[in-house]
Write a protein that binds this DNA or RNA. Sequence first.
DNA 1: TATGAATGAGCGTTCATTCAT
DNA 2: CATGAATGAACGCTCATTCAT
Lengths: 207, 207, 207, 207
Amino acid sequence: MARPSDVHAKIDLLRAAEQAFVEHGLEKARVEDITAKAGRSKGSFYLHFQSKEDAFRQIVEGFLARLAAMVEYPVDLDADFETIITSWHEKDLELFEFFWQNRAVAQLLLHGGSSAQFRYMVDEFAERARTNCRMLVELGQARGYYRQDLDLDVTSLAIAGAYDRVVRELVAQPKKPDLSRWLETVQDLLLRGLAANPERARRRPRS
Amino acid sequence: MARPSDVHAKIDLLRAAEQAFVEHGLEKARVEDITAKAGRSKGSFYLHFQSKEDAFRQIVEGFLARLAAMVEYPVDLDADFETIITSWHEKDLELFEFFWQNRAVAQLLLHGGSSAQFRYMVDEFAERARTNCRMLVELGQARGYYRQDLDLDVTSLAIAGAYDRVVRELVAQPKKPDLSRWLETVQDLLLRGLAANPERARRRPRS
Amino acid sequence: MARPSDVHAKIDLLRAAEQAFVEHGLEKARVEDITAKAGRSKGSFYLHFQSKEDAFRQIVEGFLARLAAMVEYPVDLDADFETIITSWHEKDLELFEFFWQNRAVAQLLLHGGSSAQFRYMVDEFAERARTNCRMLVELGQARGYYRQDLDLDVTSLAIAGAYDRVVRELVAQPKKPDLSRWLETVQDLLLRGLAANPERARRRPRS
Amino acid sequence: MARPSDVHAKIDLLRAAEQAFVEHGLEKARVEDITAKAGRSKGSFYLHFQSKEDAFRQIVEGFLARLAAMVEYPVDLDADFETIITSWHEKDLELFEFFWQNRAVAQLLLHGGSSAQFRYMVDEFAERARTNCRMLVELGQARGYYRQDLDLDVTSLAIAGAYDRVVRELVAQPKKPDLSRWLETVQDLLLRGLAANPERARRRPRS
DNA sequence: TATGAATGAGCGTTCATTCAT
DNA sequence: CATGAATGAACGCTCATTCAT
């Protein structure tokens, strides 16, 4: 069993690194800043990470992995559409909650202190999110809920972007906003935009 | 007289710097790479720029200035709404065209090799764009075209984000896409989402 | 624990810096030369000094501080003049000894590889030395040992200068000269020059 | 015949260089500063000087050459000593006048913005001045005017130093001091110090 | 294992000098 | 001859990484 202090060493360092990266970006953040913030020695950093970039990667990958797990839940294609949309809403709320909880790293990624060499990770994820989104739209079309004349590529992009930006603002808030209301506003806007029959697109207020 | 200053020098350097910054980000881009790419000596860089950061700033500021000139056109509040929307569409098309023409810098800014110290410039611009957007939505509400129940803050965010992301994709395309179609797709989605009376939101195809 | 800091490091570096500064002057001395001479890495220099100028300042300040401690000994104004003169002679001998021991830095300062920005430190010190000297002359006048017709400003200048130059030569000697004889020669010349009654000015040889 | 502007080009540059060197020292003074101050182009500098160091050398050499011409006047060894001393006084006054007129360069040399590589020129000159001085003292001894027990090396050093320092102060004065009085003060001090018979050493006031 | 002193590659910037005009 | 734009060697300093203790 490691000494109690060791248990938290890596966690302390990761947290400090997160802060440092958010504040200064990958390049400008100094390893010494990180270790000082974590109250550890400079050498200890290299007991846990191969390099500064490695620490960055671990932070990003950890975040994206947890994020991916939330986003790529299997859609039950046989369920009725109303159910799918409802579960979508629930999932998105969890997502917003997750972003809020991890707003430091989220800012890091969404604003891009990421430095060219890690951009691909965020881009890849953004692409996957958009693909997910696109599948949902296609499903909606197939079921006749959504308009047939949509350009799926551009539409999915716009939807993903709307989420993107709202989340980016979300994580920059000093106090936790009403996530549910934010989410509903976005979904309402987009669902109406997608709907074949506007009347049905209106989200029913939760009773 | 003295050797006349090479009029292409600064332009060459700016172009090379743009490339280097897009490829490696501000920190990792080396001045020597920039000058080599521009086929100039290292010293020549400092004939035109105070520092590497200065070159970066000039690129960003130049781009944002030209962009701002396009975005902040005065809206004729007395015009009828159809006219406003039409002119909005035209302006946006110019904007898309502008982004395509300047896709290198656009990528630089939208992805954010920008490094913490310049983020504020992009953020500030994004904020202005969103404010513009918000004003248009308010106007639509006042005229009765848009729903009254919209949360202006979040809605304007979502709209700005949709544009954001579409443009980000746009500038990453290897070949020039059909800007007009992309734009119409986005606007159609959003206008329908905003519309009080869905029938009227449908954009009429240009005759 | 960590590698204990090499206690000789800073001393080695200061010595090497002294040499380099004496040889090439502040500007031309290269940090890399200094560290090479000290058998250390370039980086180690910056563990001990903020900058090349800082190292220079530390050397000069250290020297001047020790020097000041020797020069500004309190004169017992109530003592009889013979005693004062004797103690003056003793102090000066210590001073000569000190300059000889520290001839490297002394040369640096007296010749002035000092670069404009540090000249003031030497000038300030020279001014203080001259003021000290002036006070002694005034005292001699008050006691009736020295002539009343002296222009104190110029006289003290000349006396300080005589010392200056002798010391400058002293520190340039390859072998330690007879400090005592040098000192006596100077003092004898000056005391005779100052004396109201030439007979009394003659220094008695130590028995 | 060169164009009128050319006639003054080198003179302008030398003057500007003097200023720049006095202000910043050889290393820190930039060629561009010099040419700007002279109202000339950077290239013109190299029409007149091989390098920055060359300009410095020309300034120093020019000054020292004119100085040497004043100092090394032939002493008429057959003249009676009173005459020699009187002519010495006259020469020294001219010297003081010369230093005052050329106080900019004088400061440059005496304070030593000279940088290691030119120190030898000043040192050499200082050595010659001291040798001159020594010869005069020897002469005085031979004629029985000066004490026989003087250590010529150290004494000449002290005398040269007294002049040195007084001149150094002289050239730093904002307003022209009474050169004659300064000179007499120094000479009086030194002559009394040297004199075998104090009574004869007293300088007679000019009638 | 933990520490932090030591290392040295790397890069931004300066500025004396050159040379095309 | 005069100009000043262009050049590139040189050097101070930083900081990620190593490693002796």
